[in-house]
Lab assay of single mutants.
Amino acid sequence: SEIVVAMYDFQATEAHDLRLERGQEYIILEKNDLHWWRARDKYGSEGYIPSNYVTGKK
């Protein structure tokens, strides 16, 4: 599975969105859409994140 790191904070506005915290790692579950990826955080929460807010883990 692909691990990404959040470059920016993202506040979830929709129920299906996942909040991003800058510097935290997330697991990508689905990339069915170019701009919104389904991800899981370290607490096990899942939701959609803006793909341009994250970068591949170095």
Rank of each mutant, 00 (worst) to 15 (best):
39 A>G: 05
31 K>N: 07
40 R>F: 04
43 Y>F: 11
44 G>K: 03
41 D>N: 07
17 D>L: 15
41 D>Q: 01
44 G>D: 04
7 M>F: 05
40 R>H: 03
40 R>M: 11
54 V>Q: 01
17 D>Q: 15
45 S>T: 12
15 A>T: 11
29 L>I: 12
23 G>K: 02
25 E>H: 08
20 L>V: 04
56 G>L: 14
58 K>I: 14
47 G>W: 03
46 E>Q: 06
4 V>C: 10
47 G>N: 02
30 E>K: 04
5 V>K: 06
38 R>Y: 15
43 Y>W: 11
19 R>A: 14
36 W>V: 05
54 V>W: 00
26 Y>M: 01
35 H>W: 12
15 A>D: 12
17 D>H: 15
47 G>A: 02
48 Y>K: 07
41 D>G: 01
49 I>A: 01
25 E>P: 07
8 Y>T: 06
58 K>H: 14
20 L>T: 02
12 A>D: 06
51 S>E: 05
19 R>H: 12
21 E>Y: 09
34 L>V: 12
18 L>Q: 01
14 E>I: 08
28 I>E: 02
5 V>E: 06
4 V>M: 09
36 W>T: 07
9 D>W: 04
50 P>R: 05
9 D>K: 03
37 W>V: 03
48 Y>H: 05
26 Y>V: 04
2 E>R: 09
13 T>K: 13
12 A>F: 04
4 V>F: 08
8 Y>F: 13
24 Q>V: 06
23 G>V: 02
29 L>Q: 03
45 S>A: 14
6 A>M: 02
25 E>F: 11
11 Q>M: 14
33 D>V: 05
4 V>W: 10
7 M>Y: 05
45 S>C: 15
6 A>H: 02
40 R>Y: 03
4 V>Y: 11
44 G>Y: 03
13 T>L: 13
21 E>T: 10
25 E>N: 07
31 K>C: 10
49 I>H: 01
41 D>Y: 02
26 Y>H: 01
56 G>V: 14
55 T>A: 09
6 A>I: 02
37 W>C: 05
23 G>I: 01
4 V>P: 00
33 D>R: 07
45 S>N: 15
18 L>D: 00
12 A>N: 08
57 K>G: 10
10 F>N: 03
30 E>C: 12
53 Y>L: 13
12 A>I: 07
36 W>L: 06
25 E>C: 12
44 G>T: 02
52 N>S: 15
26 Y>C: 03
42 K>Q: 11
6 A>V: 03
20 L>P: 03
55 T>M: 11
57 K>W: 09
11 Q>V: 14
28 I>Q: 00
7 M>S: 05
54 V>F: 03
1 S>N: 13
25 E>G: 04
38 R>W: 15
27 I>C: 10
38 R>L: 15
27 I>Y: 09
16 H>S: 13
57 K>F: 11
21 E>G: 03
10 F>R: 11
48 Y>E: 02
58 K>M: 13
8 Y>G: 05
28 I>Y: 03
21 E>K: 08
32 N>V: 13
8 Y>R: 13
28 I>V: 11
30 E>V: 06
24 Q>N: 09
14 E>K: 14
7 M>N: 06
15 A>P: 15
49 I>D: 00
15 A>S: 11
9 D>T: 05
9 D>C: 06
6 A>F: 03
25 E>D: 08
13 T>D: 09
48 Y>W: 13
18 L>C: 06
35 H>F: 13
24 Q>D: 07
45 S>V: 13
58 K>F: 14
9 D>V: 03
10 F>K: 08
27 I>F: 09
16 H>M: 10
38 R>M: 12
50 P>Y: 05
26 Y>A: 00
9 D>M: 04
38 R>N: 04
21 E>Q: 10
31 K>Y: 06
22 R>E: 10
10 F>Y: 14
31 K>A: 08
29 L>F: 05
16 H>K: 12
20 L>Y: 01
34 L>Y: 10
16 H>P: 06
29 L>K: 02
27 I>L: 12
31 K>F: 05
5 V>T: 09
5 V>C: 12
36 W>R: 11
54 V>I: 07
40 R>L: 08
43 Y>N: 11
42 K>R: 10
46 E>D: 05
32 N>Q: 11
40 R>E: 03
13 T>H: 11
42 K>S: 08
46 E>C: 06
39 A>P: 00
2 E>M: 13
10 F>D: 00
29 L>E: 00
38 R>G: 03
22 R>V: 12
29 L>G: 00
45 S>I: 13
9 D>F: 05
19 R>E: 10
50 P>V: 03
10 F>L: 08
33 D>P: 03
42 K>W: 05
31 K>H: 06
47 G>F: 04
25 E>V: 09
18 L>T: 00
57 K>Q: 11
38 R>V: 11
4 V>S: 03
48 Y>I: 08
36 W>M: 07
42 K>F: 07
17 D>R: 15
56 G>N: 13
15 A>Q: 11
1 S>M: 15
2 E>G: 08
10 F>Q: 03
9 D>Y: 05
16 H>T: 14
36 W>Y: 08
51 S>P: 08
13 T>F: 10
1 S>F: 15
53 Y>E: 02
8 Y>M: 12
32 N>H: 12
58 K>V: 13
11 Q>K: 11
12 A>M: 06
37 W>L: 04
2 E>K: 07
19 R>M: 10
13 T>E: 10
2 E>V: 11
30 E>G: 06
22 R>M: 11
48 Y>M: 13
34 L>T: 13
19 R>C: 15
7 M>T: 07
22 R>N: 05
1 S>C: 15
47 G>S: 01
42 K>N: 05
43 Y>E: 09
20 L>I: 05
58 K>G: 14
29 L>P: 00
13 T>Y: 10
47 G>Q: 00
33 D>L: 07
18 L>G: 01
7 M>K: 10
25 E>T: 10
25 E>Y: 10
39 A>F: 04
24 Q>A: 10
44 G>S: 04
47 G>D: 00
57 K>T: 12
56 G>K: 13
8 Y>I: 09
19 R>I: 09
45 S>G: 12
5 V>D: 00
56 G>A: 15
35 H>Y: 13
2 E>T: 09
7 M>Q: 08
43 Y>K: 07
56 G>M: 13
8 Y>A: 09
32 N>C: 15
